[in-house]
Each structure stands twice: as C-alpha cells, then as structure tokens.
Amino acid sequence: MLSEIWTIFIKDLRLDLRRMENFFSMFFFSVIILLVFAFAMPADKDSHIIFAPGTFWVTFLLSGILSLNKSFQLEKENACMESLLISPISRGSIFLGKLFGNIIFIMIIQCLIIPLFSLFFYSGFLDHFFSLMLLSVISAVGFSSLGTLLSGLTTDLRFKEILLPILLFPLLIPLLLASVRIMQGILIGEGFSGELDWLKLLIGFDLIFLIISYLIFDFVAEM
C-alpha cells in the first residue's frame, strides 16, 4: 500500500519536473493575482495589513485550482489512467498518491508566494514564514482532499475549468474562513494558540474530507 502510494507520488513529481511549464504557469498566475490585488486595494500600509489574509487565501484557492486541473490531465493523456486502473492496486492508493503530489506542488508555490507577498504588501509577513508554511500545509490537506476527488470527477467533462471551482469553492468555505482567521492570529503575533477553535475546525475539516474522499474515490475512478 505505502509503496504503491510512493511510486505514484514519485511518478507525478517526476512528470511535474519534466513539465516545468505547469509549475511556471501556476507560479506566474499567482504573481499576477497578487498584482491585481495590489492595484485593487488602497495603497496605504494599514489597509494592506487588514486585507492581507483574505488576499493571501484567495490567491491560494485560485492557483490551487490550476494544480488540481493538471493533476488528472496528466493521466488522461494517452489513457494512462486506464493503465493505472488495471494495475493491481487499490483506487485509494491512486487517490493518496495524487493527493500528496498536489500538496507538495501547492507547498512549493506557497514557499515562493509568502516572500513575494511580504515584498508587495506587508513586510511583517516574512517574520512568520514557518507558521504560515505550517498553516499552508494544514489547509492544503483539506483543499487537496476535496480537490483531488472533484478534479477526478470533472476531468472528462465539458466546461471542466468552470465546473471544478463551482463545485469546490462553496464546499471549501469552512476551510477558507478558518485559514483567514488563523492567519490573522498569526500576523498579530499570537501564533496558532490565538485561534484554537478555528484550528480545531480546520483539522476536523481535513480529517473528515480526507477520509470521505479516500473512501468515495472508488466511485469516481470507474469509467
């Protein structure tokens, strides 16, 4: 089981490395969103601090969607998914392999976005780099669990680029609210302890949808 997940995960990572255009397009997309926010927001430092968490997580969601869209796109080319599905492995392993691939991809982007964010908007950002990375990991788990499930579901459909966010974003509202609120706590120097209830909600969200998506992915993987 673990070796299968690992094999799929490594394969996805290798494919991502061979196709750096995926990574670059996602990264520059994030940069452009930040830029748009910079233009849309009032220019003074105070409002930057107020808007920072919201802006940050909207960027996270929008660029994350790109990562999800590409995840199964790689499998659909040349019908590799079929090859994967007739291999003697459980569907759950495929799901978890893809899930970890998505999480790592998102984390690498976050790693670059956080310094950029502090450069553009709010220099205090970088002081909390590790807390913010940790928060990003926790959010990425919930985001990718639901996201991997739903992108597996929408890959073959017409208008999948629009359907995936329509289905995914309303479901992610608890995650978005929790992430924004915890981030506010981190930025005012309280760390994670400031918003413990929200942290519990976020971790609960992660666990619930990790388990449900894992169990339900079997039904998405049929053709």
């Binding site: 289905l167 609210l177 609960g204």
Partner: peptide
C-alpha cells in the same frame, strides 16, 4: 451521488464556521 453526499456532509461544518 458523490457530490450529493459530500455537499450534504459539509453543511454542519459550513454552519459552524459561518
């Protein structure tokens, strides 16, 4: 059916967070 299930299960979490 998949969307129907996860959509409904999300409601308590959404309500709590909101």
């Amino acid at each position: 059916a998949v969307v129907g299930i996860i959509g409904f299960l999300d409601v308590p979490l959404i309500h709590q967070s909101v």
